[in-house]
């Protein structure tokens, strides 16, 4: 094999991903029933594709037309502004009060935990939620730099730092798939 070649392994194919998404949505409904005091908030930019899907599925399961669903950008809350390239911000859209609500934060991949730390900081600037839960599609176990664990995980994988986990979404990338990329 050539040096620097990429080894790509599928973690979840299209069918498996749909089943996993359905399971996550059902788990949320199991714990939050009517979603009356619960809000879903996706983390910009890549967590939005997952949160869009989950929000739609939850609505279908509980038979409601509308639930509290928002999007949160964490660019201004990162702890590495001075040490890496400046990132362009995305929209934050939270058109409801999170005061005293259960908030479910959603992101696609949980790795070091730093994004979630930033997201919690950003979230409390909008109010004081009753509690906050974390839902991720892929949990990269053993790579955490902060004491943060998911409450709902679609798929758990043991990785080393040089590996990458990428989630492809039909809306953006033309296919639904989760892959692990390894530099050889």
């Amino acid at each position: 094999m050539k040096p620097n070649a990429l080894l790509v392994k599928t973690l979840l194919n299209n069918d498996q991903l749909q089943i996993t998404l359905q399971r996550l949505a059902h788990q949320l409904v199991e714990n939050h029933l009517s979603f009356r005091d619960t809000a879903i908030i996706g983390i910009q930019p890549r967590g939005i594709y997952l949160s869009n899907r989950i929000a739609e599925m939850v609505k279908a399961i509980i038979g409601k037309k509308k639930i509290d669903y928002g999007k949160l950008d964490i660019t201004f809350y990162r702890d590495d502004v001075q040490t890496r390239d400046i990132k362009a911000p995305h929209d934050t859209i939270i058109p409801f009060s999170i005061e005293n609500k259960s908030v479910i934060l959603i992101d696609d991949v949980l790795h070091t935990g730093r994004t979630i730390r930033s997201a919690m900081d950003a979230l409390v600037d909008y109010g004081r939620p009753k509690n906050v839960e974390l839902l991720v599609l892929v949990d990269r176990r053993f790579s955490r730099e902060l004491p943060i664990q998911p409450d709902y995980a679609g798929y758990t994988v043991d990785t080393i730092i040089t590996q990458k986990v990428i989630v492809y979404w039909n809306e953006k990338d033309g296919k639904d798939e989760v892959v692990l990329i390894d530099k050889v």
Partner: peptide, 27 residues
């Protein structure tokens, strides 16, 4: 255009109850 798009987001921040972000706490 980049400055305008970034300012759009900061304008949103300025309309919140907490009109502050911790981005440049080391500057």
């Amino acid at each position: 255009e980049q400055i305008f798009q970034t300012a759009d987001e900061f304008k949103q921040v300025l309309q919140r109850p907490i009109k502050k972000v911790p981005t440049l706490r080391d500057t």
